[in-house]
């Protein structure tokens, strides 16, 4: 009997937001035929990939009852590092004029290393000094952004090697590469959260940090790892963003942390910790990108789009809280 109830509750929480997504897609398809083309759908997926990847890590962070405000800045920092290591030898304004043209793996690893390093610093501060995640990552937000500007002298870094063009605009079996990368990261993060001890402990840290502690979970190490993984994902997003535009500039991705937090939240991850799914983060990101794409096709001004987005986030959380209140 209990098992049935368990599944039923799961159904509601899982499929409520999916119903919204499907309604939006069906509605748009009826109103605007130009919406329901393969090209447009792939476009939507590609658009959602960058903050979608951020939302995956953000899900872990928020389940652990934390927050990471710095991912947009870390993304920008990683992006400019990737771009600076990936300029062609013929580029007019090379950041490192004497650098030989490197294989694309080098700038990629550079970006991932920078992202991971920022994550380690975030996680280390939170775990070992005990300052709130909000504060630690707020500091990192402006620090990483500042470094990105210093590193580039405030200028865009462009004319990149063809390897980037493939990552940004190439495809694998017809699926755009950013989407492929997104899918791979979804799979990895999903397994990480659901099938590893690490994942179980993410829930435990957020659900009841004392229970985790007395059960022998190394809470400090967990916090460090969670923010490190978030940093790594920001680095990966940085590579995708760079590849998509075949350039990078330090003012990139301002406000992406909010989109990532919004995706996660719309997907039902609770800010009071211990509750959330990767599945939700993916659906949440899709809801946002379908909404943006749809409103653009409908000719709704981008200023209005922002207002609608804000309302959607608030409504999503209200519905979510109702759902949980019913349980209690």
């Amino acid at each position: 009997m209990d098992k049935k109830q368990f599944n039923f509750q799961n159904m509601i929480s899982k499929y409520g937001i999916v119903a919204v997504l499907i309604l939006m897609i069906v509605g748009m398809s009826i109103v605007k035929p130009s919406f329901r083309t393969i090209t447009n759908f792939l476009n939507i997926l590609t658009q959602s990939s960058i903050y979608g990847i951020l939302a995956l890590g953000m899900t872990l962070v928020i389940i652990s009852k934390g927050i990471d405000l710095s991912v947009g800045s870390i993304l920008a920092m990683s992006a400019v590092v990737a771009a600076s290591l990936g300029q062609t030898s013929t580029a007019t304004s090379r950041l490192f004029p004497n650098l030989p043209e490197l294989p694309v793996i080098v700038p990629i690893l550079g970006a991932l290393a920078i992202g991971t390093l920022c994550g380690v610093i975030n996680g280390g501060l939170i775990a070992f000094t005990g300052i709130p995640a909000f504060i630690a990552t707020l500091g990192m937000t402006t620090i990483a952004r500042g470094f990105a500007y210093i590193y580039t002298n405030g200028k865009p870094v462009s004319t990149l090697i063809p390897g980037f063009r493939f990552i940004g605009q190439g495809n694998f079996l017809g699926v755009p590469m950013p989407v492929v990368i997104y899918l791979v990261m979804i799979l990895i993060t999903w397994v990480l959260l659901n099938n590893t001890r690490f994942g179980k402990h993410v829930y435990a840290v957020g659900g009841n940090i004392n229970a985790a502690e007395v059960s022998g979970v190394n809470v400090k190490k967990m916090l460090l790892l969670i923010y490190t993984y978030m940093g790594l994902l920001a680095g990966i997003s940085g590579v995708v963003a760079t590849a998509r535009m075949v350039s990078a500039q330090p003012g990139l991705a301002v406000g992406y942390e909010l989109t990532a937090i919004a995706s996660t939240t719309i997907g039902g991850t609770s800010h009071s910790g211990g509750i959330g799914t990767i599945w939700g983060a993916v659906v949440g990101a899709l809801v946002l990108s379908v909404m943006r794409n749809g409103m653009t096709i409908l000719g709704i001004h981008s200023y209005w789009q922002q207002i609608v987005e804000g309302l959607v986030i608030i409504v999503a959380v209200i519905l979510d809280m109702r759902k949980n209140a019913r349980k209690a």
Partner: peptide, 11 residues
């Protein structure tokens, strides 16, 4: 000290 929104077995 349970982790409320996780199954009994994970606790």
């Amino acid at each position: 000290s349970p982790v409320l929104y996780r199954p009994i077995m994970e606790n």
